[in-house]
Design a protein around this nucleic acid. Structure first.
Lengths: 214, 214
DNA sequence: GAATGTGAAGGTTTTCACAGCA
DNA sequence: TGCTGTGAAAACCTTCACATTC
C-alpha cells in the first residue's frame, strides 16, 4: 500500500459496506457511485476516489457489482472473519455491550468478560463467566484476544490499558472519558458519548450546522 | 462569528474542557498551550489556533488561567447550563444510557423516556415513567425538549426521527446504524459503535496506525 | 450513452515561525 | 525570558473534469 489512507476514508469504507449489505438484501445486483453516494450522503467522486485507493472494482459504463464490492470491502475492513473480543468492566455500559447484537452481526464476538467486583466475578452474562481483572494479562494472552473494549471508570482505565498492552493486544476501543497512553503500534479508538452531546449543545447554541456527518 | 468552525475544532473544544476540568480539580491555576496539548495528545499550535477562533484568552509569557478558560469553554460549548434530553428506545443501549452518570455530570439530564413496548410503557426507569411513542411529537413539544437520543432499531429510526423533527427538536444523537434524513437546520450526530470496531479491525489487518485519535 | 478511475485544481486544516507582549 | 496570537506555508482532503472503457 503506497499512499496513507485517511481516517475519513476508513470510516467511509464502513458506510459503503453497510450500504452494500442493504443493497444485497434488496437483491440489487449493480450499483453506481452516484447511488452509493446518495445512500450515505456523500458525493460520487468521493466514493470513487475512496475505492480507487484499494483497486479498480467497477466497470465503466455500468457501475459496481453489489455482491462483489461488498465482499471486497469486508476483506479490506478485515471483517470477512470472526474476531474474538474481550470486554473489561461489566458496569452500566459494559452490560449493554454484552447484549449488543450488532457486534456479533459484524463478526465481533465478545468471548471474555472481566471485572474487579467480587460479586460479579464468576457470574454468568449471556453465557460468559466473568473473570477476575487480576488475571487480565494472563487470560488475554491465553485466549489470543486481539481486540479489547474498555468500559471501566476513567480513574482506573490507564492501569487496565497498560495490562492490555502488556498482553500484546493491538486494538482497543475505550469508553472511559480520558486520554490513554498506548505505544504507537497499538490502535486506540475512543468512544466518548458525552462529547457527542457537547457537539450538539455547541450546534444548538451557536446555530451551527455541520457540513457533513460521519 | 466570521470563519466557519471545523468539526475537528469543536471536538477538540470538548477535550480542552475535559483537561481543564481535571486541572482545576488538581488545583492548577495556570496552564500553557504546551501542557494542554500534551494532556490531550495534540500540538501547542493546534491548541492556540483553536482557541483563537473564539477570542484571546491567554496571557503572553504566562499561559491561560485554568478556571477562566474552563468557564469560557463551557460557555462556547453551551454546557454552562442544563439541557433537558429525551431518550427514545429503552432497549439494550437505551437502558444503559438512562443510568450513564457522565451525561448528568455534563449537564445533560434525561428527563423523558419513550418506547413502543406496552410492557415498558408506564414503567419506571430511574424515576422516569416511560411514555408511549405514539405521544412522541406532542410530549416533546409540551416539554420543550431540545436534544433527543435515538436508540431504536434501524428499521424504525427514520419514522421516529421524522416525528422528532416535526416536534421542532434541533439536535439528535442517533445510535441506529442507518443514514437518517433530517432537514439542514437539524444537527444530527451518529454514534456507531460497530464502525469503531471495524476501524480497529482494519487497523489490525492492514497494520495501520492512525495519526491522531479524536 | 453511461459511469469508472484519476491527475489536477480547489478548499480546508494543520503546522511553522515569529512578532508582540507580560 | 517565556508563551500567546496569527499570518504564511505546508500538508492534507475533496471536488472537478475528462480520458477511458464497457
Amino acid at each position: 500500500m503506497k499512499k496513507r489512507i485517511s481516517e475519513s476514508t476508513i470510516h467511509r469504507l464502513s458506510l459503503y459496506y453497510r450500504a452494500l449489505s442493504l443493497l444485497e438484501k434488496e437483491n440489487v445486483v449493480t450499483v453506481s457511485s452516484k447511488e452509493l453516494a446518495k445512500r450515505e450522503k456523500l458525493t460520487p467522486a468521493q466514493v470513487r476516489k475512496d475505492l480507487s485507493f484499494f483497486g479498480s472494482f467497477g466497470t465503466r459504463g455500468l457501475g459496481y457489482q453489489v455482491a462483489e464490492l461488498r465482499s471486497r470491502m469486508s476483506h479490506i475492513l478485515g471483517i470477512n472473519r470472526d474476531w474474538r473480543v474481550a470486554l473489561i468492566g461489566i458496569g452500566n455500559i459494559g452490560s449493554a455491550l454484552v447484549s449488543y447484537k450488532e457486534f456479533a452481526r459484524q463478526g465481533f464476538h465478545i468471548v471474555k468478560l472481566f471485572d474487579n467486583d467480587q460479586r460479579k466475578i464468576g457470574s454468568n452474562h449471556k453465557g460468559i463467566v466473568v473473570s477476575d481483572i487480576k488475571d487480565l494479562e494472563k487470560e488475554l494472552k491465553e485466549d489470543n484476544i486481539e481486540i479489547v473494549i474498555v468500559a471501566v471508570p476513567a480513574t482506573v482505565a490507564q492501569y487496565i490499558v497498560d495490562d492490555v498492552v502488556a498482553a500484546g493486544v493491538k486494538a482497543i476501543l475505550n469508553f472511559a472519558p480520558i486520554n490513554l497512553r498506548v505505544p504507537p503500534e497499538v490502535c486506540l479508538r475512543n468512544e466518548n458519548m458525552s462529547m457527542e452531546l457537547e457537539y450538539l449543545s455547541f450546534a444548538v447554541v451557536n446555530n451551527h450546522t455541520p457540513k457533513k456527518v460521519i
